[in-house]
């Protein structure tokens, strides 16, 4: 006698497999993706909207926090009546999943939204479709690569921060050199994988060598501990674990300040920013909806992103805060030199 539970389990599994096999048949492409992407006639928007409504659905892979991206999606669906299926992972997971699936012949994804270097990797993997859109001219120039296969939609600004209860107004460091003061011995936290930050921040020093020399000196004199994860760094500033942190996300600082946490952003030179953006998959079955979503994120979506404390890239929709100086982490450079910068980072801080 076979154990009945065991038997039942197997039967159910076999049945379910059969059902799924029957249902998994993909729709054929109606209109060439490249044609839709290149069209720039005066009725571009009307055609996109009409085409998108016919396509009726959209799948988005994103590295943007669910809470935030859901607001953009909700507004998009409310305006055009097109429901969006969402998959969320880390920037690397988004890259890995999109590449593996598309190479394996599975074309579920229509729009891919992730961090700059990963988007650039998608470009190299021939996953993305170049798009022509008049809105690109309104975007912050560093956020539109020449190949137009993806476009930046928001900047994730990385800033230093301090705990307002542990650091008095008078003691707040104002220049990089202030961090060398021995009073900060062991009290400045550094993110343990801030390779791209280091690569970019030393550009604001007179030379690369001087920049690296400064951080080596900081490491020798004040031995800053390394902690993992930008959000955790922000939490640790607020809890008083460490009074100063060099890399936290600006939007997190604003959100926490709003909740009453004793944390403030600290400016020691230009802010460093990661570009996050989105591109359309070449293999999309919903080219109109995909391009329409990209367009929406770069126009009306920008105000929603700003309300979530992000820094939008469309400076015509939402101008940069007055006096804000931003240095953008260069995606191509980071993609090619990540390992090299990791080594530089490790020899500097460990």
């Amino acid at each position: 006698m076979i154990n009945p539970k065991f038997h039942e389990g197997i039967t159910r599994r076999v049945l379910a497999l059969g059902l799924v096999v029957v249902l998994a048949a993909g729709p054929a492409l109606a209109q060439s993706v490249a044609e839709v992407a290149a069209y720039d006639g005066p009725d571009r928007m009307e055609r996109l909207v009409a085409g998108a409504k016919k396509e009726g659905t959209l799948t988005l892979y994103t590295a943007t926090p669910v809470d935030d991206v859901n607001q953009v999606i909700a507004a998009f669906t409310a305006k055009y009546g097109i429901p969006v299926t969402l998959w969320r992972g880390s920037s690397e997971d988004v890259l890995r999943r999109a590449v593996t699936e598309i190479k394996g012949g599975r074309h579920d994804v229509d729009v891919i939204e992730t961090n700059g270097p990963e988007l650039e990797a998608l470009h190299r993997e021939n996953i993305l479709q170049a798009v022509d859109s008049p809105v690109f001219s309104e975007i912050f120039p560093d956020a539109v690569p020449d190949h137009r296969e993806w476009v930046g939609s928001r900047l994730n600004v990385i800033t230093a921060s301090y705990n307002t209860e542990l650091v008095s107004e008078a003691d707040v460091p104002k220049r990089w050199d202030d961090l060398l003061d021995p009073r900060w011995g062991g009290k400045i936290g550094i993110e343990s994988e801030a390779y791209d930050w280091l690569a970019t921040v030393i550009q604001s020093f007179p030379s690369r060598e001087e920049g690296l020399a400064f951080f080596r000196k900081l490491a020798e004199t004040n031995r800053p501990p390394l902690h993992k994860g930008h959000p955790q760094l922000a939490n640790m500033t607020a809890s008083g674990e460490l009074p100063i942190m060099l890399q936290v996300y600006l939007y997190r600082v604003h959100q926490m300040e709003q909740d009453g946490a004793p944390i403030k952003a600290l400016s020691l030179g230009p802010a460093i920013a990661r570009i996050n953006g989105l591109g359309v998959a070449r293999t999309t079955a919903h080219p109109n909806a995909a391009i329409l979503y990209q367009q929406f994120t770069l126009t009306e979506g920008q105000k929603i992103l700003a309300s979530r404390h992000f820094t939008p890239t469309n400076t015509k929709e939402v101008p940069f805060p007055a006096g804000m100086e931003v240095k953008v982490i260069e995606p191509t450079g980071m993609l090619d030199a990540l390992t090299e910068w990791r080594e530089t980072f490790e020899t500097t801080f460990q």
């Binding site: 799948t59 926090p65 669910v66 809470d67 299926t85 969402l86 998959w87 969320r88 992972g89 880390s90 997971d93 890995r96 999943r97 994860g229 930008h230 959000p231 955790q232 922000a234 939490n235 996300y249 997190r252």
Partner: peptide, 25 residues
């Protein structure tokens, strides 16, 4: 799980990861 889940087959650990990633301690 993070590579294998799809829209509709989310699991608890993904929610935990999401909250941790966003610093929503």
């Amino acid at each position: 799980s993070v590579l294998l889940y799809s829209p509709g087959s989310e699991v608890v650990s993904i929610v935990i990861w999401e909250l941790w990633q966003n610093g929503q301690y």
